[in-house]
Computed example of a mutant assay.
Amino acid sequence: MSDPIYEQVRGNPKFAQLVKRRGRLALLLSAIVLVSYYAFMMVVAFAPQILAVPLTEGGSLTVGAPIGAAIIIISWLLTGVYSHFANGPFEQLNNGIVRETLK
């Protein structure tokens, strides 16, 4: 037996909108991180000479180091993007659903 409050929330069109928008954003951000990470790993596995090029003539730091660091930084930034939406538009939708449900 299901609680009527849960049924009310699930039946709210704003809830469907929240689930759809949040899922789409999570999928997009996850895909960006996964594609960039796995592309980097494929280059490491199959074409390591691309990443072994030194940044400066005679230097020991290679192209791979800043690219790897950039992937990590991009992951952090995308976490911030998700947090921005979670604490902004998604929170507003959630609050609207709660207000309508508790009337």
Rank of each mutant, 00 (worst) to 15 (best):
K14C: 00
A31K: 07
Y82A: 10
A45D: 15
L25M: 08
Y37V: 07
I72R: 02
W76L: 09
G59T: 04
A26W: 08
I50A: 15
Y6F: 13
V35Q: 08
L55D: 02
V81T: 04
Y37C: 07
R24A: 13
F90P: 07
T62C: 06
I73T: 11
A69S: 12
P13Y: 06
A31L: 14
R99P: 02
E100F: 04
G96I: 01
M42A: 15
I74P: 08
V43W: 05
F15L: 03
V98F: 13
N12W: 05
S36I: 01
L102R: 10
G59K: 06
I5P: 05
N12M: 05
E7G: 08
G58H: 03
L18D: 04
M42R: 14
L55S: 01
I50K: 14
E100T: 03
H84A: 14
G11N: 07
R10P: 02
F90L: 10
H84C: 08
A45Y: 07
E91H: 12
H84S: 12
A31E: 00
P4G: 01
P54H: 06
V43G: 06
T62A: 09
S60V: 13
F90W: 07
L27N: 10
P54C: 06
L34Y: 09
F40A: 00
T101P: 05
L51Y: 09
L29E: 01
G96P: 05
I71M: 12
L27A: 15
A69K: 07
V81G: 01
V35W: 09
S75K: 03
Q49D: 15
L61F: 05
A47K: 14
A39Y: 01
I50C: 10
P13I: 02
G88W: 11
I74T: 12
Y37N: 03
Q49W: 10
G64W: 01
P66M: 06
W76R: 00
L61Q: 11
G68H: 05
Y37W: 12
M1F: 14
V35P: 07
T62E: 08
E57G: 12
G88E: 08
M1P: 13
P4A: 02
A65G: 02
Q17K: 15
S60I: 12
Y82V: 01
A65E: 11
E57W: 11
A26D: 13
Y6C: 03
G64N: 00
L77Q: 07
T79P: 09
P54L: 06
S2A: 14
G68T: 00
A31W: 06
V53G: 09
G80Y: 00
A70T: 10
N12T: 01
A70G: 13
L34T: 07
Q17V: 06
F85D: 07
R99T: 08
A65V: 15
V33D: 00
R10C: 10
L77G: 11
S2I: 09
I73P: 04
L25C: 02
L28W: 12
